[in-house]
Every structure is written in structure tokens, then in C-alpha cells.
Amino acid sequence: MALTHDTIEGSLRAKFSEAIQGVSEYLGEFTVEVPPEAINEVCRFLRDDPDFAFDQLIDVCGVDYLAYKDYPAEAPRFAAVYHLLSLSHNHRLRLKAFVGEERPVVPSVVDVWASANWFEREAFDMFGIIFEGHPDLRRILSDYGFAGHAFRKDFPLEGHVEMRYDPDRGRVVYQPVTITERNLVPRTHWQEADEDG
């Protein structure tokens, strides 16, 4: 089956009706918008149906739409985005599930594709999206005591503390920022001659 707007929308709407919120195309790649509560069932169908056969999950990532172009302020702030690949049909498909800032929860798809494990952990760590049912949802890139989610658009870029590993305590510690002024301008032979007198 050729992957077209009509075949995607027709097949998915026939199976899931209102759960398919939209299908869009950009540069020959399709994105299907699905409510979070339907993501696991839709993923399982896309994997198992022979017409789709999306046997690989390439990536799961988070997106923060805070202050994004003309994005409505009342719309859900975050999206969990799933990138699928069918090796047998050589098709790619993107699924997108929007979640609000107050309750950014999406069901885990680790039981559909085991590769979702670390992808979901990264999206949780960086964006704070919670993947319900994940077998081990904990931080993967930042320290366990790290406060906040670094890829959120409102995460501060400057701070007053720095972190380092303390070998005596055997853990990461936070301390006030220490800045040592350095001169990074290379010295030339004529500067040295002027200083020597």
C-alpha cells in the first residue's frame, strides 16, 4: 500500500474514528495527531497491521510550543512526537500527542517497541513529560537531584549555582558559581617587548 494522505487518514479513521485528530504532510512526510490516551493503541495497530508494518520506533522526543510563532496560548504546551519506520514498505510516519502543562502525561509505548525506553526517559528528563506505565521512568541525562527540565523554553539559561562531582561525598554537589577571570587573548612578541621595556 502506498502511503498517502488518503490511505493514512482512511485506514486510521476507519479503525479509530475520532481518535485521529488530523493528518498533515510536509515535504513528503506525514504527521498524524492523536490524543494521548489513544497513542498506545494506535502505535500497536501501526506496528501490527501488514499494510503499515511500522516495525521500528526511531525516536520519541518532546516539543515545547511556548511562544511558538502563531501557536494559540490556550492550546496544550507540550507534544510527545514519535518517529516510525517501516523497513518492509520503506515508509516513515510521525505521530504527535499534545499534552498540557498542568498534566503532561502520555501512556508509555515501551510494551509496543522496547526502543522507546531511553527515548521516553530523555523526554521526561528534558521536558517533564510523564510516560505512564514506563518500567523505569527516571532521569537519564541530568543528575537525579537536578531541579527542572532543561529543554523547556522557560528554563533559566543563567544561574547562581554550579554543579560538580565531589569524590569525597561520592555524588554531585551544587555550590555558588565561582568565576576566575582569564585573559584569552594571545600574547604577541611586540607586546612582550613593550612590557619588558
Rank of each mutant, 00 (worst) to 15 (best):
V34F: 09
V109H: 02
A147R: 13
F78I: 09
R103Y: 00
N117Q: 03
P35R: 14
L141V: 15
G145Q: 11
F151C: 09
I39N: 03
G148K: 07
F78G: 02
P72F: 10
E37W: 00
G148N: 04
E41L: 10
P104L: 04
H83K: 05
V34Y: 04
H134K: 09
E33L: 12
V34A: 10
R47V: 11
S24Q: 07
R94Q: 14
Y68M: 11
A147M: 03
A73L: 09
N40R: 15
V110Q: 00
D125Y: 01
I130N: 02
V42C: 08
N40G: 06
F146T: 11
Y144N: 08
E33M: 11
F131T: 00
L84C: 08
R77E: 07
S108K: 04
V81Y: 02
G28K: 02
H134N: 02
A97Y: 00
V81H: 01
S108G: 08
A79I: 10
P104G: 09
F127R: 00
E74Y: 02
D143Q: 07
P104K: 00
H149A: 04
R92A: 07
P35W: 02
G62K: 09
D70Y: 04
D64M: 08
V105T: 13
P104S: 05
R152V: 14
S86I: 12
A67Q: 14
Y71A: 05
F131E: 01
C61W: 07
R103P: 00
A75Q: 13
V63H: 01
L66G: 04
P107A: 09
A80H: 08
L27T: 14
E41I: 11
D70R: 13
F124G: 03
V60P: 07
D111T: 15
Y144F: 14
E101P: 06
P135T: 02
L27G: 01
D70F: 10
A79E: 14
V110D: 00
F78D: 06
D48N: 13
I130R: 09
Q56V: 13
H149G: 02
F127G: 09
S142V: 14
E102C: 01
F155E: 06
L95M: 08
V109S: 08
D51V: 10
R152A: 12
V23K: 06
S115T: 15
V63E: 06
D51T: 14
E122Q: 04
S142Y: 13
R138S: 08
S24V: 15
K96W: 07
H149L: 03
A80R: 06
F146Q: 01
C43L: 14
F54S: 08
Y144H: 11
Y68A: 12
H149E: 01
V110S: 01
D125L: 11
L27R: 15
R94E: 03
F98R: 13
R77W: 07
F119L: 10
I39M: 12
A97D: 02
E33D: 15
S88F: 00
R139W: 02
P107W: 04
L85R: 12
L66H: 09
E102S: 14
F151K: 04
E101Y: 05
E102H: 03
V32Q: 07
A53F: 13
P72H: 06
K69T: 10
V105D: 11
H149V: 07
L137T: 03
V42S: 10
P36Q: 07
D55I: 05
N40D: 03
F45G: 00
E132A: 14
F30V: 11
D70I: 04
H91I: 06
E132G: 01
L84S: 07
I58T: 14
P135F: 08
